[in-house]
Design a protein around this nucleic acid. Structure first.
Lengths: 112, 112
DNA sequence: CTGGATCCCCTATGATACTG
DNA sequence: CAGTATCATAGGGGATCCAG
């Protein structure tokens, strides 16, 4: 059994919280993700609507980031079998929960 | 003069808040920055101490991210003219203010 | 309409060596 | 001790074309 120094315990404690912070940052740090979350929350909840409000994002990147947000559980989607097909996105509970933190970040950014 | 549609006004409003969020994210999204801020807050406030607690970061990257955090106003440094020279880092008021947000991110990350 | 497939490029990160 | 200079690498993002 390895005797633990207080420094080792200290490191593991903080490394753990940092892993969580980095994990959180990675889920929202995509170039457009914060923007996409806000727009979806405001009703721009379809692929073509998001393209309209994010004019400089490519189809490929928009699609990829939508899938990543879905995989991370921040958004969900509803496929409506019309012709042409229609897809509605919506924030999950977890997606809603990030909005106040994004707001806090925006306010923090204005300091000084 | 260009007549504004309500959609244009809508876009500019949200694009503005998103620019602020992305700006905030960029200042802390470096691979090690959140970790560095926490460690500096906890007293690991010198180059060699940070290297000890961040064993996989290279000197080059550590130095660069320290300079970036300093340029963004999150940390300050004090150079003590000993031999060998000694440099102490400390969080600025702005740097302290981000800590609760990082904590909120960590708690959010644990959801579900 | 909603994206997947493919290719390219740029930037952040990393490794190594060197300096005041 | 506290960095900087140089080179190499990987992954995110962008452009274009294509498909259900």
């Amino acid at each position: 059994m390895i005797k633990e120094t207080s420094s080792n315990a200290y490191n593991r404690k903080f490394l753990h919280s940092v892993c969580r912070i980095n994990g959180a940052l990675e889920t929202i740090a995509g170039r457009w993700k914060a923007l996409m979350l806000i727009h979806i929350a405001e009703g721009k909840n379809r692929f073509s609507l998001l393209k309209q409000v994010l004019p400089t994002v490519s189809d490929q990147v928009l699609g990829r980031q939508l899938r990543e947000l879905e995989a991370d559980g921040l958004i969900g989607k509803t496929v409506i079998a019309e012709v042409p097909v229609r897809v509605d996105y919506h924030l999950t509970e977890k997606g809603e929960a990030i909005l106040p933190i994004l707001d806090a970040l925006a306010q923090w950014h204005d300091k000084r």
